[in-house]
């Protein structure tokens, strides 16, 4: 009787400790990475490579999704606003939702899908083929060579891509709103500056910068701690993408509620 009670309590302890341990490891990983960010020298060449990989190569997909997001948003908002005769607010409505919310979030999703998964797979394969061990054997710190350039590239690329997403989206909205739905071009653009402050734009930038850090951090962590073999890498990749997407939405909520 007593034995089974102790067993039960032990089980509770175990289930509580497990996520705590994981969180601790993930946190420690970030702390180590941040430590090595500030220990010179910075591997500029790796950084440029990763900005190219995470940022420059995502331009097309981000622009494409941005255009369609802006277009559908305009269409939806138009039908809603038209009922109140408030179609003058179409431009500001589209621009505000893009800048504050959709730009940072959807572009982060797209980059996670395109670059985040590849990041996990690449680092995971380097782990299982012992390339990370080889780096350590040469006396070179894997964080400096692999993790730090990725984190920095994420922090730099995400806000730039989100801005691109916003601009393309707003112009996508312009095409639908002005050319298809017949809202006057002056109303569409003219009203925007009245409603958008620098704070809104900064708000969006805080978000996308945070997402950049979170996504690259999570993707690097899962790659770095990948399990054995091809199965390990595939599992790590799936987990990294899912965890990144969930965390994007969680952070989005937290930041929005903090900044309001």
């Amino acid at each position: 009787m007593l034995d089974s009670a102790i067993l039960g309590i032990r089980w509770i302890g175990k289930t509580v400790l497990f996520p705590v341990r994981i969180l601790g490891r993930v946190g420690l990983f970030l702390a180590t990475a941040i430590f090595w960010t500030f220990v010179p020298p910075l591997k500029v060449e790796r950084l440029i490579r990763q900005i190219n990989f995470i940022g420059a190569k995502s331009v097309t997909i981000v622009a494409l999704t941005g255009a369609f997001t802006g277009m559908v948003l305009t269409l939806e908002s138009y039908y809603a606003l038209e009922r109140f005769g408030a179609d003058a607010l179409l431009g500001p409505a589209v621009a505000l939702s893009m800048i504050r919310e959709l730009g940072p979030v959807i572009s982060a999703f797209m980059i996670t899908a395109r670059a985040g998964s590849a990041l996990t797979a690449e680092i995971g394969i380097m782990r299982i083929t012992e390339q990370i061990d080889a780096l350590e054997m040469m006396g070179l710190n894997p964080f400096r060579y692999l993790i730090v350039p990725n984190l920095l590239a994420g922090i730099i690329s995400f806000p730039l891509l989100a801005s691109l997403f916003n601009v393309v989206g707003i112009y996508g909205g312009y095409v639908v709103g002005v050319k298809l739905l017949g809202v006057s071009s002056g109303t569409f653009f003219g009203e925007m500056p009245q409603y958008i402050d620098l704070t809104e734009i900064l708000h969006g930038l805080y978000k996308s910068t945070t997402f950049g850090l979170v996504v690259t951090w999570i993707c690097c962590y899962f790659g770095y701690t990948t399990g054995y073999g091809a199965e390990g890498v595939s599992k790590a990749t799936t987990r990294a993408v899912v965890a990144s997407c969930v965390l994007i939405l969680v952070c989005d909520y937290v930041i929005t509620s903090l900044l309001f």
Partner: peptide
Amino acid sequence: LEELRSRIGFLFQGGALFD
């Protein structure tokens, strides 16, 4: 540790060349 490792070469199973 770096100094000690610098005296050692390690040939990994798959070669571990950087792709």
